[in-house]
Design a protein around this nucleic acid. Structure first.
Length: 860
RNA sequence: GGCGGUGUGGCGGAAUUGGUAGACGCGAACGACUCAAAAUCGUUUUCCAUCCAGAGUGCGGGUUCGAGUCCCGCCACCGCUACCA
């Protein structure tokens, strides 16, 4: 007997798979294809447990699909551009390229011992010149197709770093690194026209049957469709060359409750008035300076400035309304102007109270329960759900009693037929600004020529490579400051010209990598034949944090690549099925130092029995499990776990305790349990392989049958688990079957069969030990190449079945009946049981319900 | 505020989708082996109750022969989103 030693067996099988090129994806005319993809990692330098869980899920599917006769594509790459590399350059002096490629190398060496079935021959990083060169040509095609454009847009400018910051990098209005107040600057920026596809991106969501509903909902909210009308309020006196103010509303049914107009400080009219009205200018400047973070907005006072302008109500020209500039009106939503209806909007009511404006109800509750106070009489703004029926007292159109929804529809058609306003559908989704003033990204292939203007680089001049000789000693974009890089000649006239020094948002890189994996070395961005065979991604797996941006951008890009001829229309939705896996969490161990500050400790430094720090004996406080993070030190390094327990243990554990979509808590007890189990399986396999064949005989027939029944039931359950992301459930069945097998008194032949089947069922999760058992039991070849076991119905249905007997719906006893017993027979047997007899006494049952194969319910 | 999700033993969770609630794992207790410990193996472990009998899937109602599962109304927690007109 030898001990279970993962360190010995795991490398052996990994090289066996490599030599046999098991995971090298190849097109096959005989097999159905299957494309499994996990969201590729950022090369931070270390893999973490979250990666392990993510890739283990993908690997289970990969191996299961191979065993069920599929030709599988399971690639891996790196999302390698991005800010951390530049920060590392600034902090440690390492060049971003050197830093990134070193990290990639390190991460590959950490991934390989986990035994993932990946086609490493397709590996690429998005910072590979080859990859981003193709991305540049995609950009040029999209420019020609008018899917990209340039416009002036406000950005967050950090005056110390001399760079543009993403919104997430602005904290409390200050730059995250510099800590100084961020300025709003207007810069020329490149944009993808994603907003043109709002409707399409929204409507197609409902066809994504194998996407989680919450992700679809998040995207739906993000795209944010609303329908309403645009309606004009004529100005009493024309101003700034306009005779009217356009207003957008989703509640045209409250038009008769209007009491004021409010404009954004950035509205054309506000801007015009500001030029001659210094008080307004002061007010607007104050509004613009206001912090835009959510918490302050929540409490911020609603303030307005009466412009003195008056408009006429569109329904009644004698009804005049004041025009305010107000701090809570956004320029980039709707028209930048609203009409205020205080009776039916809490915010408008606050505003009306403050500036003593009229409050006019247009509808009231159907039944007045005496508790309702109209807003004009000091009550709250009345805002019932749109589906609720209310009574209209100032009605624009429709019935007197109708739901808000019906009233809106009626108001829209009324407005349209009397030409007061027109029905419009609006989306919240904005165009995707892709310009980043950074070095470590894909250069935008554009040239600015004094004569010819903005021109794309010629495709034959691609790729435009990033220069290696850059300095991070000075602030700002190193590309901008490079002595020669940006100087070039115009592709049209040949005169001196300069390159765009902005690079692309890294979300661009990850918006098409799934397509590139089908032909990673093609001379064009995609290869039609490979695309036709491999696309779409059959199963995409990743974190919920990408529910909106990455997935939405990818959906946009796939459509853009179709329009520009790089993908067929059938790839417009590139991910057939999406699965979002939960995080790996861990308890937090904390002590407090002499100054009273918290000090965190790594799990391996803690003695859990005594709840103390091993080195000092200090008592620790244990906080509930939270996402692993370096700052809280509640992390475990997969590399350490592998060297202690082996890859199979870590793979088994990350799938075992929780459903894959939920968070799983990492506990050392759990990992040890997983390891103990694998060691038990190992020992059992050894015992079985050494059993004496003479043990078989008639005496064991029943035991044989029992074991076979359990085996086929397990095949059925585990298969179903792997088919439906029920990994934790599948693993629990594997635990149970190991238990059954170890206690079984069946013959050696059947035990051996059960053992190899158990190994096969385990093989997607714990492939190394499975191969070892396969070999130990004398099977030929690799287990990964053996066809998946099939559950045989003969063993799933037994001749005698046990039926529970309920009395009035409560389980009381059970009976054994032949599987083909008639309903009547079952009823008779049930009624003859002692339990039922004594419950009945002399009475007859009211009714007896027999569900064949399921249950019997006696109602008395 | 809007939208979505979740709620089952001491803990993570299972339940063939309306049919024996608590599988499997952790933890705990007891036992075997051991001089002892570790490791390993075995037994017990929803609650209440000595047994009989009850109760029980966040709370309150409903539909049904039968509800963790379906319907209505609450409560709590989590996520996304939000001065969105």
């Amino acid at each position: 007997m030898t001990h279970y030693s993962p360190a010995t067996i795991e490398p052996r099988w990994q090289s066996a798979w490599e030599q046999a090129e098991i995971f090298r994806a190849a097109r096959s005319s005989k097999k159905p294809k299957y494309y499994v993809l996990e969201m590729f990692p950022y090369p931070s330098g270390r893999i973490h447990i979250g990666h392990v869980r993510n890739y283990t899920m993908g690997d289970v599917i990969t191996r299961y699909k191979i065993a069920t006769g599929h030709s599988v594509l399971h690639p891996m790459g790196f999302d390698a551009f991005g800010l951390p590399a530049e920060n590392a350059a600034r902090d440690s002096g390492k060049h971003p390229k050197e830093w990134t490629y070193k990290n990639i190398e390190d991460m590959i060496s950490q991934l390989k011992p986990l035994g993932f079935g990946l086609d490493w021959s397709r590996m690429f990083a998005t910072c590979d010149v080859e990859y981003y060169g193709h991305q540049q040509s995609l950009f040029i095609d999209m420019l020609e197709a008018a899917l990209v454009y340039r416009k002036k847009a406000a950005v967050n400018w950090d005056p110390v770093e001399m760079t543009v910051l993403a919104n997430e990098q602005v904290i409390d209005g200050k730059g995250w690194r510099s800590g100084v107040q961020v300025e709003r600057r207007e810069l020329n920026q490149w944009f993808f026209k994603i907003s043109d596809m709002s409707e399409e991106l929204l409507n197609q969501l409902e066809h994504l049957d194998n996407w989680p509903t919450n992700v679809k909902k998040m995207q739906e909210n993000w795209i944010g469709m609303s329908s309403g009308i645009e309606i004009s309020f004529p100005l009493v006196n024309a101003v700034a060359g306009t005779k009217q103010i356009e207003v957008y509303t989703t509640r045209p049914d409250t038009l008769l409750g209007a009491s004021f107009i409010a404009l954004s400080p950035d509205h054309l009219i506000s801007r015009e008035l500001e030029a001659t009205n210094s008080q307004l200018a002061k007010f607007s400047a104050l509004c613009r300076a206001e912090s835009t973070d959510e918490e302050t907005l929540e409490k911020a006072e609603k303030r307005g400035f009466d412009t003195g302008l008056r408009v006429k109500h569109p329904i009644d020209e004698h009804w005049e309304l004041p025009v305010y500039v107000a701090n809570f009106i956004l320029m980039d939503y709707g028209t930048g102007a609203i009409f205020g209806c205080p009776a039916h909007d809490r915010r408008d009511l606050d505003f009306a109270k403050k500036y003593k404006l009229p409050v006019i109800s247009t509808f009231v509750p159907l039944s007045d329960d005496g508790l309702f106070i109209r807003p004009e009489q000091g009550g709250d703004a009345y805002v019932p759900p749109e589906s609720q029926k209310v009574r209209y007292i100032k009605k624009l159109a429709g019935e007197n009693e109708q739901s808000g929804r019906d009233a809106i529809a009626a108001a829209i058609s009324y407005s349209e037929s009397f030409k007061i306003g027109k029905g419009v559908t609006k989306y919240r989704l904005r165009d995707w600004g892709l310009s980043r003033q950074r070095y470590w990204g894909c250069p935008i292939p554009i040239i600015y020529c004094p004569t010819c203007g903005v021109v794309p680089e010629k495709k034959e001049n691609l790729p435009i490579q990033l220069p290696d000789d850059v300095s991070f000693d000075t602030l700002g974009n190193p590309l901008e400051q490079h002595p020669t890089w940006k100087h070039t000649t115009c592709p049209i006239c040949g005169d001196e010209a300069v390159r765009e020094t902005d690079t692309m948002d890294t979300f661009v890189d990850s918006s098409w990598y799934y397509a590139r994996f089908t032909a990673p070395h093609a001379k064009t961005p995609t290869d039609p034949e490979e695309i036709a065979y491999w696309m779409n991604v059959d199963q995409y797996i990743g974190g919920i944090e990408h529910a909106i941006l990455h997935l939405l951008y990818s959906r946009f890009f796939a459509r853009a690549m179709h329009i520009t001829g790089h993908l067929p229309e059938s790839c417009s939705e590139p991910f057939n099925a999406l699965f979002t896996q939960g995080m790996v969490t861990h308890s937090i161990y904390q002590t407090t130092n002499v100054e009273g500050y918290p000090v965190y400790h790594f799990p391996e430094d803690i003695d859990l029995h005594t709840q103390t720090v091993k080195s000092t004996g200090e008592k620790v406080q244990i906080f509930p499990s939270a996402k692993m993070s370096k700052s809280k030190k509640n992390v475990v390094d997969p590399v350490n776990i592998i060297s202690k327990y082996g890859a199979d243990t870590i793979r088994w554990f990350v799938l075992s305790d929780s459903p894959p979509e939920r968070d799983v808590e990492w506990t050392s007890a759990g990992v040890e349990a997983a390891h103990r189990h694998l060691a038990r399986v190992w020992t059992l396999s050894q015992k079985i392989s050494q059993l004496d064949p003479e043990h078989s005989g008639d005496a064991v027939k029943d035991h044989d049958k029992e074991l076979l029944q359990a085996m086929h039931k397990t095949i059925f359950d585990v298969t179903q688990g792997f088919e439906s992301f029920g990994f934790n459930a599948a693993i629990s069945k594997l635990y149970a079957f190991e238990n059954t097998l170890s206690k079984s008194k069946a013959s050696q032949t059947v035990k051996r069969q059960a053992m190899t089947t158990l190994a096969q069922l385990m093989s997607p999760v714990t492939p190394h030990i499975a191969e070892e058992i396969w070999a130990m039991q004398g099977e030929k070849g690799l287990i990964i190449q053996a066809p998946w076991p099939q559950a045989d119905d003969v063993y799933l249905i037994s001749d005698i079945i046990t039926l529970p007997i309920q009395i009035n719906g409560k389980r009381r006893t059970e009976i054994d009946v032949a599987k083909n017993a008639s309903t009547h027979e079952i009823e008779q047997i049930a009624l003859s049981t002692q339990t039922v007899k004594s419950a009945l006494g002399d009475a007859l049952p009211k009714t007896v319900i027999v569900v064949p194969g399921r249950i019997v319910n006696v109602v008395i």
